[in-house]
Design a protein around this nucleic acid. Structure first.
Length: 577
RNA sequence: GCGCCCGUAGCUCAAUGGAUAGAGCAGCGGAUUCCGGUUCCGCAGGUUGCCCGUUCGACUCGGGUCGGGUGCGCCA
């Protein structure tokens, strides 16, 4: 028995009926069943199953050209060779049955081995009502079934400002989390602060040397130290601090190690917020190791017979789990390698209740995948529950020239400096326009351009334009109606917009499942193009009241999808530009 | 040497194993009394680096090969 509870909530001047979680879940289930593609799939299964007893599930595609209909299925691949019928008879019978069986299609045509479905306008435009009704929820689903996923990304050393590569991972991760939550998973974003180990000591030392420099003493930052100016800028403030000045060198290194770290974490957080990338949790390596120590990690691996001593170090037999060579856990000098804390951290993730982990790593870490999977397998969590996505590098291109970056030397473009010259929305959009595993050339000049050459402005302008139309309609005395006569919509452009609008849920689902965040901005560009083109040819607001109302309704549905899509990629949907 | 990523139009890139491989920009040529000229339409542009293979069917999968990038530490 299902319980539907609801309550009245005040929203502005009106009372709004608010549904309980159970009701919303039920509504989502219902909607999934109503998905166009799924519906057609069922129709095809019925049409074929009944006649030929074929078990295979058909694939419903979006045809490459409008001439091939709204949906298509390659029925020929289901041709039952063992049955004594000709291919033509089979195809014709299938098409015949499909076109008679329902009133959804205006026509069903056979073209070679394909069956093309042409949706009835009544159905296509009628579905726009669902879009407007579902509003911000349109496109969402419960496909994820509430599965808890932790997406960890950026996770830079707190040794300096974030660079553009971290920024790319930041956007991709942020959007992935949004997509997962939109499709019914429960996903959280997390930032792992690598605040233990030798790198932090180097940071303290580099700061100390800078400090001495400022005091007039000479010193040189070692080869693998941190040479960026930001450290000098930071330590300056302590020149008049008697307490700090009178510290011994060892004390001061320790002091700087802590304070510079805190400062860097703070500044990284600030940069990411400027960029609208937010994490549910910032978790510290030092804290993790307090909970699950190096000794405990070793103990588990020892009990499994996965460790051995060699050359004065302790090794982990990762080759047993498919790695190409074994890895050191405890170095000759007695300190542990970072695999140990990484293993500890990932155990912690699972123990906090996450069922599935997604990590976004830089290309320099691809070689580390096997060893972490080995550890997770050894801990008994199943390495298939860890997914690593490699986010490739970014090359900034300015006026046709590529800029090389190197972190250690302190020569790299920071996220902050990029955001100083380029709008955050533009950076996000461009970072999302490539598959994450592909290298990305970021054209700074193009991103700054405030014109149609710039896809970000093209897309955002589409939304602003719809708002403008509604304003114009209001001034013309027209109001939005919930129940327009949609049969008045007859223009090809209207059909195209409606078709794209109804495809949105498929796009969201595909982008999430394949982790292909770039599909969302590409889709929005397509939608914007269809709309700009339509706008140029057809007036929405005319003397014909009912027709105008129908067109406004179409625009309303499109605006909603554009808004939902822009929300997913974290780009503003402006009212005017 | 080994591993990973990428080779698609002049440039930057798309294309759940499916139909005649598509966009944007750049180039050329047009449109517009209008709800914003921050727009639209058209033309041109290709042996998907190359060679095998799997398949009814390959840009997509597998094996080579060439080119570009990147990583290969008892650093993280």
């Amino acid at each position: 028995m299902l319980w539907f509870t609801y309550s009245w909530k005040k929203k502005g001047n009106t009372m709004v009926l608010s549904l309980s979680g159970e009701m919303l879940r039920w509504k989502r289930l219902y909607k999934d069943m109503m998905s166009l593609k799924e519906e057609i799939k069922q129709i095809v299964i019925e049409g074929i199953l009944k006649s030929y007893g074929i078990q295979t599930k058909p694939v419903i595609e979006i045809p490459p050209k409008a001439a091939f209909g709204d949906f298509a299925s390659n029925i020929s691949s289901f041709f039952p060779c063992e049955k004594k019928i000709s291919f033509d008879d089979f195809m014709n019978t299938v098409v015949d049955k499909l076109s008679k069986k329902n009133d959804m299609f205006e026509k069903v045509l056979r073209k070679g081995g394909y069956v093309n479905f042409f949706l009835h306008n009544r159905v296509l435009f009628g579905r726009l009502r669902n879009v407007v009704e579902e509003g911000a929820q349109f496109g969402s689903s419960n496909a994820g079934n509430g599965k808890r996923i932790l997406v960890e990304f950026v996770s830079a050393n707190p040794t300096g400002p974030l660079n553009v590569v971290s920024a790319r991972a930041g956007v991709v991760g942020d959007v992935l989390v949004k997509l997962l939550n939109f499709t019914g998973y429960r996903a959280d974003a997390e930032f792992y602060i690598n605040d233990a180990g030798r790198q932090m000591h180097m940071l303290g030392e580099s700061a100390e040397i800078r400090f001495k420099e400022l005091l007039g003493e000479s010193g040189e930052i070692p080869e693998d130290g941190y040479k960026g100016e930001y450290i000098k800028d930071y330590v300056k403030q302590f020149l008049n601090d008697k307490k700090v000045v009178s510290m011994s060198e060892v004390e001061r290194i320790q002091f700087f190690k802590e304070t510079v770290k805190d400062e860097m974490v703070k500044s990284q957080k600030h940069s990411l917020e400027r960029f609208d990338v937010r994490f549910k949790k910032w978790i510290s390596e030092v804290e993790i190791l307090k909970q699950f120590s190096v000794q405990q990690v070793l103990k588990i691996l020892e009990d499994r017979g996965d460790v051995y001593k060699k050359d004065g170090a302790i090794w982990f037999s990762t080759t047993k789990y498919g790695d190409d060579k074994d890895r050191v856990l405890i170095k000759q000098n007695g300190t542990h390698t970072y695999i140990v804390s990484d293993a500890s951290y990932h155990k912690n993730k699972f123990e906090r209740g996450y069922e599935y982990l997604i990590n976004l790593w830089g290309p320099d870490h691809h070689g580390d995948i096997m060893r972490l999977k080995a550890a997770i397998e050894a801990f008994g969590f199943g390495s298939r529950n860890l997914e690593i996505i490699i986010v490739q590098q970014v090359t900034l291109v300015s006026k046709g020239k590529k800029e090389k970056m190197s972190k250690r030397s302190g020569k790299f473009i920071t996220l902050d400096s990029l955001l100083d010259s380029v709008d955050s929305d533009a950076v996000r959009f461009f970072f999302l326009m490539r598959r994450s595993q592909a290298h990305l050339d970021f054209d700074v000049e193009l991103a700054k351009t405030l014109s149609l050459e710039n896809p970000v402005y093209y897309t955002k302008y589409c939304h602003a334009r719809t708002v403008n139309i509604f304003n114009f309609a209001r001034e013309a005395g027209l109001s939005m109606t919930d129940d327009p006569d949609l049969s008045l919509l007859k223009e090809p452009g209207e059909r195209e917009i409606a078709r794209l609008v109804l495809l949105f849920p498929e796009v969201v689902q595909g982008a999430t499942e394949k982790r292909d965040v770039h599909r969302v901005p590409y889709y929005l560009l397509d939608l914007a193009k269809a709309f700009h083109s339509y706008y140029q040819k057809v007036r929405v607001v005319t003397d014909d009241g009912p027709l105008s109302e129908a067109r406004l309704f179409l625009v309303k549905a499109m605006q909603q999808v554009m808004k939902n899509g822009l929300d997913l990629i974290g780009v503003a949907a402006p009212e005017k530009m």
